[in-house]
Amino acid sequence: MSRGVKVAIGLLGVLLVAYGAQLLSYKDSKGSPDKRLSQNGAVLPILNENGPLLITTAADAILLKTYQMEILRSNLSDDGDTASTLTDVDVEKQAEEINMDVRKGKVCYAPGNNFKLFNFELENCGGTCFSSWITFVHFKWHNKEFVKSLETMSVDTIYQLPDGKFLLLESGFEHPIQAYYAVRRAAKVISFLKDSILVHPISYHGTNGFTFRHDDDNQPRINTYIKYSPQEQTLTYQYISNNSYFGNAKNIDSLRRGTFSYQNGHFEFQSEKISVREF
């Protein structure tokens, strides 16, 4: 047996032992503080913008890679029959041929290690590139572990709310028309019930989900954000809405700043201030 093969086998052994150890630690970690938590209770996202998947722990690394391959495999073929028989090398090769890539894979731990999520961006490029996101949430209910997929964009931060629910702050890019990319942000309140993850409504302008697109193509640029203040239990946001990209509307930026307050288990819309600038 060559030295290289021995080293590879040894490394695989170390990874598997670490994976087992991490599984045990995840099992017993309820309530223990996590080094990745910032002081205000938010999780610092583990993110690598453009490079390969960032390795956090050996177990997470193995799962990240496994999920990455499964996502590619399930997107290569509509019926999944052909792709399910492909080796990982073939899957990567075929995905590269059609400009499909899983980027920005990351793991986020919730405060108190109540759950962790694996978050991926799947990019498909033809004439232009389109992104979609895939998230797998690992959580426990009565000591049984469940893994469920959840519709999110890129999860930037997770907060625990006063009543035990969790707030996810998300962002992503969208490509509503040719040659125009815009940032999209969203906030989501989730809780766990038996084997399900429930996403609770945040009512905003007559819809049940709080999300917006930031149409900021004019100068000077204005930052967009959604921020949560654990002390005041408020959600504040800022973005620009401009419909001139979608037809004959006037080129008017509507800068919207607003606040939600967390009351009786849900975010209540408080106010929104709109200021306008015309070009």
Binding site: E70, L150, K188, S196, G209
Partner: peptide, 11 residues
Amino acid sequence: ENIDQISDESF
């Protein structure tokens, strides 16, 4: 009770 979205099976 209204729910905005629920989780799905994974793979």
